[in-house]
Design a protein around this nucleic acid. Sequence first.
DNA 1: CTCATTCTACGAAGGACATCGTAGTTTGAC
DNA 2: GTCAAACTACGATGTCCTTCGTAGAATGAG
Lengths: 118, 118
Amino acid sequence: MTAPPAAGGRTLAHPAPEDIRLEDVLHALSDPLRLGIVRDLAGGRGELACSDFDVPVTKSTTTHHFRVLREAGVIRQVYRGTAKMNGLRRDDLDALFPGLLDSLLAAAARQEERRAHD
Amino acid sequence: MTAPPAAGGRTLAHPAPEDIRLEDVLHALSDPLRLGIVRDLAGGRGELACSDFDVPVTKSTTTHHFRVLREAGVIRQVYRGTAKMNGLRRDDLDALFPGLLDSLLAAAARQEERRAHD
DNA sequence: CTCATTCTACGAAGGACATCGTAGTTTGAC
DNA sequence: GTCAAACTACGATGTCCTTCGTAGAATGAG
């Protein structure tokens, strides 16, 4: 993991790539709120703080969902001052399951489009 | 309840293609047992009866898992005598989410291979 | 009709999950 | 040091999920 000096040094436990299980990834993404978070992260804007997301739940619940995503190996979280930055583990996921993440994101986009056209 | 019109053929409720939701599909596949069932169905042998699967749970539980898969729109179930035949809804899923099913199956196969090489 | 096979329905128990409120920790700024 | 901002930990609650056992219905064969 070799995190950079990361001011202060609170570190968060992330699963190693070989410990990422497909079932956990699918379960993490089966929640609409978490799927939305992942879609936002894949939007190209790089890392985002937890507070940058506009979710309809309290902060406690938000924390919970981010932890589920992190423990499933879907996102990477790093402290940066008082904020916690979130990034997609696209490299690891693509290496483990080639094409899966893109298919999932495309499916989610397609479904949203279909719903809007209704 | 009132007498079901199931004379000469019990029919089972399946979601219409436009009612299949990605979250439900992912949730259905996030269970190792159900993922295994889907992998078997994708194995090319076409339709299989519920009793053709060798799962480590009782029949009650097996019925439950098949129902979850059917209600999520992943499989199609049809009565045939005393047996209930199960088939993957590959056509519908491919139309809704192109490439998703193949990516998922490939990911599952890859994970199993990696586990065997350990 | 009787019977075995196959699957279902119902109820129950145990655990997991999503949600919240409150209290607390860490960090950076004043 | 004091304070606000961001996030976490803990406990609680209600809901859903998985599992099972038992009893029962539909079908086809004898």
